[in-house]
Design a protein around this nucleic acid. Structure first.
Ligand code: NAD
Ligand code: NAD
Lengths: 216, 216
DNA sequence: CGGGGCTTGTGAAAAAGTTCACAAGCCCCG
DNA sequence: CGGGGCTTGTGAACTTTTTCACAAGCCCCG
């Protein structure tokens, strides 16, 4: 009656996080001209264990040579492909405020293939102004431009009270993934990928750890 | 020979994350004037399950009444205390660039008890300028001011190549917890709490999920 | 004042994730 | 061309985290 043992051959969120770390480490190694790296070496540079590195990678194939380790350029390419970074991702940014502008100006995103192709705001003072060559457009144009420019990922950097409405419009316009900086839980259809970034949460984790250390 | 069953009565990182979510939900409930909430209600508002809510809270005590649920103001206070938010945390910000300035201007941190009491940079054009009433100081004054102002948490928003040196100085000056926005792994003594925020990683997780969905 | 309807707190079971341990494989050297 | 030294890939053991399930407890109503 119980369905077989279940075939869950999927990467856990922690594996995905670590893959990003491996990618960062591999970028550095490649820049240093290192040709080959062992699971040991990768583990040291990404703060995990050799067994973990091998397990993570083995979910997607066998990329190493026994006795030798992994070839840096090859593995770099593989990990990029696994993470879906072997293509460009057109991105829209909604909310050209403080954090939105900071993100927009951040060059590393583009290097990784994330291309901000539209910026929206509803403040007349901001609309029409330029951010690094791209003009801030009114939110009313959002559906049209998202479709036109084939945008698949939206970054939300508007105040919390406006986030849900923006998210809904983004999804209706064809966006499949959302990175949300506003401190609200978004209600969206389950096929939409949502990733929340909460800086308060990060500080609170620190505060918890420091406070816990003081009184056990 | 194996030490007893082991008494690991500590909250896992995921529990801590969820506590932050509960806190956010409780804030909203309190603002709405709701007097009482069940684990069910909290779960819905924080995207988890009732059993998980109860397990998480039970790590720290019994705060509810059977048949009734939890009293919102009481639980709010308890969760704040658990997270170490029943006090002020003096914070220093190093790197008054784009993301640093955005963080500095963000009012929610202060509301949660995180008080930015010093801002540092090494760019002469920025030193001496003011951010919301606080003057940007040169990094050379960092050790002295950190000690003087009793700062325990440092936020690093300098370029990656400068992050390790800043982190080391912060720790030598007495900081016990660090929130690092620079994309580098920091090497610090184990008693220092370090929390990395990597926005690339968040985007990459999205990209992975969207790409995976396309070719199963 | 006792029974019914809910909801908590918590062991026990299940699932998920990590570490272990080792056979299989590769390269180099003699 | 065969042996030694390393390192991968991977089942199996172990650990941690989540889910389940239910007794214990509280309140309200009749
Ligand atoms: N600044 C930070 O460090 C920080 C940290 C964590 C989270 N956040 C969150 O990020 C979001 C933005 O924060 P910020 O500090 O950049 O605020 P901000 O006020 O500087 O920027 C918000 C921008 O959104 C625009 N906006 C408001 N309503 C809009 C709407 N309905 N449609 C389109 N645009 C709209 C505003 O015109 C403004 O330009 C907030 O939800 C905040 O909680 C900010
Ligand atoms: N902007 C973003 O959206 C974003 C996103 C993710 C991560 N980050 C990371 O955050 C960090 C800062 O990014 P940013 O965009 O704010 O860059 P930025 O160049 O705007 O700001 C960096 C600031 O650090 C100062 N600085 C440089 N070296 C210093 C030193 N040795 N001591 C003290 N101050 C020094 C500079 O003067 C500048 O004011 C970088 O590590 C970046 O990778 C930024």
């Amino acid at each position: 009656m119980t369905p077989p043992p279940a075939p869950p051959r999927r990467a856990s969120p922690s594996t995905v996080r670590r893959l990003s770390l491996y990618l960062r480490a591999l970028d550095t190694l490649a820049a240093e001209g290192v040709g080959t790296v062992s699971s040991q070496g990768l583990a040291e540079r990404s703060g995990t264990t050799p067994a973990q590195v091998r397990k993570d990678l083995s979910l997607f194939g066998s990329f190493g040579r026994r006795g030798m380790g992994y070839e840096v350029p090859d593995l770099l390419h593989r990990v990029r492909a696994i993470l879906g970074l072997d293509r460009r991702w057109p991105v829209a940014l909604v909310g050209a405020g403080r954090i939105g502008s900071a993100l927009f100006a951040y060059p590393l995103f583009r290097e990784r293939g994330f291309e901000i192709r539209a910026v929206f705001d509803n403040d007349p003072a901001k609309i029409g102004s330029c951010r690094e060559g791209l003009e801030v457009r009114p939110v009313t144009e959002l559906p049209c431009l998202i479709r036109e420019r084939g945008i698949e990922i939206g970054i939300i950097t508007v105040p919390a009270h406006a986030a849900q409405a923006i998210a809904t419009v983004l999804v209706e316009s064809g966006v499949r993934g959302i990175l949300n900086f506003a401190p609200t839980r978004l209600h969206l259809p389950p096929e939409i990928e949502v990733n929340e970034v909460s800086l308060s949460m990060e500080l609170e984790a620190l505060s918890f750890a420091l406070a816990a250390r003081e009184r056990p």
